[in-house]
């Protein structure tokens, strides 16, 4: 129990918690192939919150699930490299993978109503995870579950532990989900639009809670809400058609976006009241992912499009020490 009191210390070779290189995912069925993720690179430092931002269908969920190897094995072809600490996630044997999941890296789902098992109490589900990973009795695990419920500020936690998911409000369900994800004090937390299903006030409460609990934990936070991203993230990664088109510190990206897509996202957002703004105000629609053209995916919608944009996929340009954009219009530092 002692060792588990603090978040696990993890590091890849370079001192990062997570390092993703050239991650690619395609879904192959008899009828079609969907190129969902097409070469994604990023890393996550200890204590950092990385916000992945992008329109619906841009591949955020698939990226997140690939990190914890949760994609359907029969359909999803995943390549590249994902390091979580020193675990090579895509090549880990099944048994090791099961020990890493939930303990080293955990996930908060978008819809806690469906992500929690409806026929078990939330307390049971938390205790189950604790017992799975730590050598402790069921009773100790239940005591821990109570601590966790207090931490995530569930009112009358003792009774609520005995509730079934459908008996809780949306906000409480998401708190239960967070408690569940944090139950073994993972080093890395993946959060897939954890506040999208909630109303505005509850959203803020959950974001504040996550910020408070996060401390030394690394968090990858997926959202399609500019305001939410600005609120929670240290660094932003903008995703379009399965690629990261821009990455950088949150204030810099928001103040001075480099990629035309990021600019488009921001121009539609009035500063100060960004929360709740959906990212659908750019002309045109996202590309069809059933083909993977040798061109910038944003070219058909881009106001600054050139001939060269349609000839090759733009290489990442290092515009400043911590800033990257995949656009031929961006000047290297």
């Amino acid at each position: 129990m002692e060792a588990a009191e603090s978040t696990q210390t993890l590091a890849t070779g370079d001192g990062d918690l997570v390092r993703v290189s050239d991650l690619r995912v395609r879904f192959v069925t008899k009828e079609t192939t969907v190129y969902a993720v097409n070469g994604v690179d990023f890393s996550l430092a200890p204590g950092e919150v990385l916000g992945i931002l992008g329109e619906s269908g841009s591949g955020k969920t698939v990226t997140l699930r690939a990190l914890i190897r949760l994609l359907p094995e029969d359909r999803a072809q995943v390549s590249g490299r994902v390091l979580v600490g020193d675990n090579d996630m895509l090549r880990l044997p099944k048994g090791d993978l099961q020990s890493v999941r939930g303990r080293t890296i955990a996930m908060i789902f978008q819809e806690p109503m469906t992500a929690l098992d409806p026929v078990y109490t939330v307390g049971y589900q938390i205790a189950e995870t604790i017992v799975r990973h730590e050598s402790c009795s069921w009773r100790e695990a239940e005591a821990r579950a109570l601590d966790l419920f207090e931490q995530v500020q569930v009112p009358s936690p003792k009774q609520r532990l005995k509730s079934y998911p459908h008996e809780l409000s949306g906000g409480l369900r998401q708190r239960a989900m967070i408690a569940l994800a944090l139950s073994c004090r993972p080093g890395v937390l993946l959060a897939d639009e954890p506040t999208t299903a909630l109303d505005a006030t509850v959203q803020i409460q959950i974001l504040l809670l996550l910020r408070e609990l996060q401390k030394e934990m690394g968090v990858i936070f997926v959202t399609h809400d500019m305001g939410v991203a600005g609120e929670i993230a240290d660094r932003l990664a903008i995703m379009y058609a399965g690629r990261l088109v821009e990455t950088g510190p949150v204030t810099q990206v928001m103040r001075e976006p480099l990629h035309p897509y990021t600019k488009g996202l921001l121009s539609s957002t009035v500063h100060g009241s960004m929360r709740g703004q959906r990212l659908q105000t750019i002309e045109g629609s996202p590309p069809n992912l059933e083909e993977l053209p040798d061109a910038c995916s944003f070219a058909p919608r881009c106001p600054h499009v050139r001939e060269a944009c349609r000839e090759a996929v733009p290489e990442p340009v290092q515009a400043a020490p911590e800033r990257m954009a995949r656009c031929i219009l961006v000047n290297p530092a």
Binding site: A106, F109, A115, D117, P118, T129, H133
Partner: peptide
Amino acid sequence: QEFVPALHSKGITSVRVLVHVVRN
């Protein structure tokens, strides 16, 4: 159902996941 990948994401073993599925 979404709770199946969610259980896997917690590291629950396949046998225990089967128990959840059967119980449902």
